[in-house]
């Protein structure tokens, strides 16, 4: 295909379709939780890709402050937008998963609280960008916030180790082996790959759009 962006979009679509098939058709019903555990194939990839997105914001923001490259600023902006969407998906699916398993839609334990803080911080990041008229200034301020905000990523991840929580410790991002049957791991990996491709597609699309926007306004 001539357009690599379009190819990425198609790959993501195929990945998501394959992800649905394995999540509902191939992965077995979990022994204790039953079918509701299948929410994991949406819930876990969403947060892992959000971590990736905010990691990219951190790197791109640092690069911007260092080199003052407009491209790095656009990448940070686009990645933060997509990261916020994936965080929202993670919180919503977690809530839906929590009701039948834990017995509540929401509780203020350290994991749920820290992920909410992360969501709000990156919303504030987007708000800050939208508020400042001067593009140079907006980029500079946003870059600083984009670096500081990354402090919350380890807080979210390690919250379940540092404090007593209702949320269980991580299954995937942890030292040692994954305490999950191989079919679950395979299904999760396919969905994670599909989500990562979707992230790449959204960011590429958004970066291009931001560039056009800035060309028109210049």
């Amino acid at each position: 295909m001539k357009d690599p962006q379009r190819a990425l979009g198609w790959l993501a679509a195929i990945g998501l379709a394959a992800g649905l098939v394995v999540a509902f058709g191939i992965a077995p019903r979990e022994a204790t939780q039953g079918n509701v555990q299948r929410i994991m194939y949406l819930h876990v990839p969403a947060i892992l890709v959000a971590y990736l997105a905010f990691g990219v914001v951190l790197v791109a923001s640092t690069t911007y402050l260092w080199r003052r490259a407009a491209g790095a600023d656009r990448l940070a902006h686009a990645s933060a937008e997509v990261g916020v969407i994936f965080t929202a998906i993670n919180i919503a699916t977690g809530s839906i998963w929590g009701k039948p398993t834990w017995g509540t839609w929401w509780t203020w334990d350290a994991r749920l609280t820290s992920v909410s803080i992360m969501f709000v911080i990156y919303l504030a990041y987007l708000l800050l960008r939208a508020m400042l008229e001067d593009r140079e200034q907006a980029a500079r301020f946003a870059a600083v916030l984009g670096i500081v905000a990354a402090l919350d990523i380890p807080l979210v991840h390690f919250s379940v180790y540092w404090w007593r929580t209702l949320h269980q410790p991580p299954t995937v991002l942890r030292p040692g082996s994954i305490p999950m049957d191989a079919t679950f791991v395979a299904a999760l990996t396919i969905n994670l790959a599909a989500f990562a491709l979707l992230y790449g597609y959204f960011v590429a699309k958004r970066v291009r759009l931001l560039k056009r926007e800035q060309e028109v306004l210049a």
């Binding site: 077995p28 019903r29 979990e30 022994a31 204790t32 939780q33 555990q37 994991m40 398993t101 834990w102 017995g103 509540t104 509780t107 209702l166 269980q168 410790p169 991580p170 299954t171 942890r174 305490p179 999950m180 049957d181 079919t183 679950f184």
Partner: peptide, 16 residues
């Protein structure tokens, strides 16, 4: 209010 806390382990039923 009663809340159930579950583990991070996921298992397939051995003989479904």
């Amino acid at each position: 209010l009663i809340l159930a806390k579950h583990s991070e382990e996921y298992k397939a039923p051995h003989d479904a």
